[in-house]
């Protein structure tokens, strides 16, 4: 156990946990917007997969990671419109339509990869951005301030989201539509427009999350997200539908993953416990969810399509 508490290993574990949590954080934040307005989107993972392929392929062809992120964003935006059209305009059952989006993303991203790329080929990854002065702080500097730009942007999105949800008119409308769409409608708020807006934000962030994941890994592979989109949805519940809570969940999941892997490599977890240990992040998240579920309440209109005059 003493090997774990060395400077190099601890720093690497925490830095790795932060990076692992970033796609979860971005996708979870986007999903939180949707759920606060009453829309559950189970298709996050599918959007992430298509964003991941779009980002990967763009970087493969252009060697420009920012163009890759932009393409991931655009793909997410388009899928956000499609998701919104299905769930808001067509008033489809949200769970089923979300699964449909997921399956579409899973299949289409693999098909495009097979047809356009074939063999996994490495791409450029994000350059590391070291923040002057802050990077030199012992321990903290290396953990937090020697990351790539997307990590910083993801964490900047937390206060921004908190501001949007809690301090703006749009945020107030989101909360009103999620709690009581009939009352919001009677006050002149367009429930459809608000839900379209949150679905577009959610899709965009999921697309960026997927692109960021593939570019950070420097590779694309079939089902590269490995269900991270679904974990992100769980983290919205974990975070009690609040941006800060989602961030805590993403970081917890990332840290537990990184710690378990580090312990395995150091032999602290014996091989015979390896498979059990692999379940630790999910088990801890579920336990936390149970605690949260007893203390916080989901938006009242979550998963309920709005029908004027009902």
């Amino acid at each position: 156990m003493s090997e774990f508490f060395t400077e190099a290993v601890l720093i690497a574990t925490i830095a790795s946990g932060i990076r692992f949590g970033v796609p979860l954080l971005l996708a979870g934040l986007g999903e939180a917007y949707g759920q606060r307005s009453g829309v559950l989107n189970l298709g996050v993972d599918g959007v992430m997969l298509l964003g991941a392929f779009g980002g990967y392929y763009t970087v493969l062809k252009s060697d420009n990671v920012w163009l890759g992120i932009a393409v991931g964003l655009a793909i997410g935006l388009v899928l956000g419109v499609i998701s919104a059209f299905i769930t808001v305009t067509l008033k489809a059952e949200q769970g089923i339509s979300g699964i449909g989006i997921f399956l579409f993303g899973l299949g289409m991203s693999d098909l495009l990869f097979q047809r356009l790329v074939g063999t996994p080929r490495p791409i450029d990854t994000f350059p590391r951005l070291e923040i002057p002065l802050l990077r030199d702080i012992p321990w903290i500097g290396e953990m937090l301030f020697r990351q790539n730009v997307v990590v910083y942007l993801a964490f900047l999105a937390i206060p921004l989201s908190m501001f949007v949800v809690n301090r703006t008119t749009f945020g107030m409308k989101i909360r009103a539509v999620g709690e009581n769409p009939e009352a919001a409608d009677s006050l002149g708020v367009s429930v459809a427009k608000v839900r379209y807006g949150t679905m577009l934000i959610g899709g965009t962030l999921a697309g960026v999350a997927g692109a960021a994941l593939a570019i950070d890994l420097g590779i694309f592979q079939q089902n590269i997200t490995n269900a991270q989109g679904f974990i992100a949805i769980a983290l919205v519940y974990f975070g009690a539908w609040r941006p800060f809570g989602v961030m805590l969940g993403a970081l917890l999941y990332g840290f537990v993953n990184a710690t378990v892997i580090q312990w395995k490599t150091l032999g602290i977890i014996p091989d015979s416990w390896s498979d059990i240990a692999a379940m630790a992040p999910a088990v801890i998240t579920i336990l936390a969810l149970v605690v949260v579920a007893t203390r916080f309440r989901a938006p009242s209109a979550l998963t309920k399509p709005f029908e004027r005059g009902e």
Partner: peptide, 12 residues
């Protein structure tokens, strides 16, 4: 040192 991640597909 060896480690089994517990997954055939989890690239991350």
């Amino acid at each position: 040192s060896k480690v089994y991640t517990g997954s055939f597909s989890d690239v991350a």
